[in-house]
């Protein structure tokens, strides 16, 4: 399962990289969003072993739990990546309003007003 997840992560990273390298700003932002999905899956699979225990809520019956630490890290990361996406989107939107284009190549050298 870990191997499969990791390969999926790799595919997501490739796709994200390709998106980030493109010219349209919306693609770049989508790329970062995909990248954060990949990162979350990666952190998850780096734990003590996937599916190797119960849900990390303490009960009397459970013998072992899955690793809670990656989960806490990811929870923080999810919210932060939302904030990052929002900032990037708004930045792109605002730049588009000021410059009239969403093409990164055309943004180059536009003089500050």
């Amino acid at each position: 399962m870990e191997t499969l997840t990791t390969i999926l992560t790799g595919v997501l990273v490739s796709v994200a990289t390709y998106l980030i390298l493109s010219r349209s700003v919306l693609r770049v932002i989508l790329g970062t969003a995909v990248l954060s999905h990949a990162a979350h899956l990666l952190i998850m699979s780096m734990g003590r072993g996937l599916k190797s225990g119960e849900v990390p809520i303490l009960t009397d019956e459970a013998l072992s739990y899955v690793d809670p630490l990656p989960q806490a890290l990811i929870l923080t990361s999810i919210v932060i990546s939302f904030a990052v996406t929002a900032i990037l989107l708004v930045l792109a939107y605002r730049t588009y309003r000021e410059t009239g284009t969403d093409n990164l190549f055309e943004w180059r050298g536009i003089k500050d007003e």
Binding site: L26, H40, E54, P56, I74, I78, L89, R97, T101, D102
Partner: peptide, 29 residues
């Protein structure tokens, strides 16, 4: 992977993110 907190958060965040994208999409070319 037995992470209920994450699943909940991710679902809601994904919804909100999509709304956000669509709102920006409304304005972007």
């Amino acid at each position: 992977f037995r992470a209920p907190d994450l699943a909940l958060t991710q679902t809601v965040i994904e919804t909100v993110t999509t709304v956000l994208f669509l709102a920006a999409y409304y304005f972007l070319p």
